[in-house]
């Protein structure tokens, strides 16, 4: 009996350690963002301090405000999401439900594109965009973001489209509805949930992207993940402000993650659990 008790306590202790390990860096950033620089640098680290919103006020409204960067991030993410979904929904429907020659190859192609290392895409793209003057523009960044958001969205949506029973479509056809109308009125409402999950994922990935952004951004278009570097330089690190910027960069994705919690797990697992995975 007592051996079991010991085991139980050990398990609880281990799980607490892991929960703490995952949550702590995030919580710690939030705490640091509410401190003054001396409090951030204090040794031993301060858990109790008088919180202030100064860092947030400075990074949002002070000189070198990151508001334009937050706007950049939002425009890029929303733009990428809209363009991706407009292209991915029809493509995923075709791959999941229609019969045509080369379907297997088309599915394979979508997956194979994901194998291309991003650095291998950005080098040629940098050369091309530089020639047509699209560096530091929204269209340049959004276009290249399609290289990772499209395959992902198509693949995720296919798995949702496959779950709808065929009878729904057949009934619609028998009623004389055209294919496009059936797709719009019957099929798409059925996969609303899957579309919402895909939107969340595409938005997250676009918001979080860094490699393409760091190469293609400039003074006009500079998402917050890149602008973060303004606060760490060789000469000095602006500790509290850096923490505040990090928190601002984390806020939307954590909020989405928590709100869409159950769906996120499904989105991550849909391939693996089915065993087939990436077809």
């Amino acid at each position: 009996m007592s051996a079991r008790r010991v085991r139980m306590f050990a398990l609880i202790a281990i799980s607490l350690v892991f929960l703490l390990a995952w949550a702590f860096p995030i919580v710690w950033s939030v705490l640091n963002s509410l401190k003054t620089d001396p409090d951030v640098l204090a040794y031993p680290p301060k858990l109790i301090f008088s919180p202030t919103l100064d860092a947030y006020r400075d990074v949002l409204f002070g000189s070198g405000s990151i508001l334009p960067n937050l706007v950049s991030s939002i425009v890029i993410s929303v733009g990428t999401t809209i363009v991706t979904m407009l292209m991915a929904i029809p493509a995923a429907y075709a791959l999941a439900r229609l019969r045509f020659r080369g379907k297997k190859f088309a599915g394979f192609y979508v997956l194979a594109t994901q194998m291309l290392p991003p650095v291998g895409i950005i080098i040629p793209y940098f050369l091309v965009l530089r020639n047509i003057g699209w560096i530091d523009t929204y269209q340049g960044i959004i276009l290249i973001y399609l290289s990772f958001s499209l395959p992902f969205a198509i693949w995720l949506l296919v798995s949702y489209f496959e779950d709808i029973p065929f009878e729904m479509e057949e009934a619609a056809y028998l009623d004389g509805a055209s294919r496009l109308r059936t797709l719009r009125r019957i099929i798409i409402p059925q996969v609303r949930g899957g579309i919402a999950v895909t939107v969340v994922f595409v938005f997250l990935n676009a918001w979080n992207e860094f490699l393409f952004a760091v190469v293609l951004s400039g003074n006009t278009v500079r998402p917050v993940t890149v602008a973060m570097f303004n606060f760490v330089s060789v000469e000095q690190t602006l500790w509290a402000k850096l923490a505040a910027v990090s928190v601002l960069a984390m806020l939307p994705v954590v909020a989405l993650g928590v709100v869409a919690q159950k769906h996120i797990v499904k989105g991550l697992t849909v391939g693996a659990v089915k065993g087939g995975g990436r077809r």
């Binding site: 950033s29 979080n208 993940t225 690190t237």
Partner: peptide, 22 residues
């Protein structure tokens, strides 16, 4: 399930920055 979501939704760039500093 809730806590596990936090790290995976973050940008690796932000994660790197947090670890490097704090």
């Amino acid at each position: 399930r809730l806590i596990a979501i936090l790290p995976v939704v973050l940008s690796p760039a932000v994660v790197g920055m947090i670890w490097r500093t704090f």
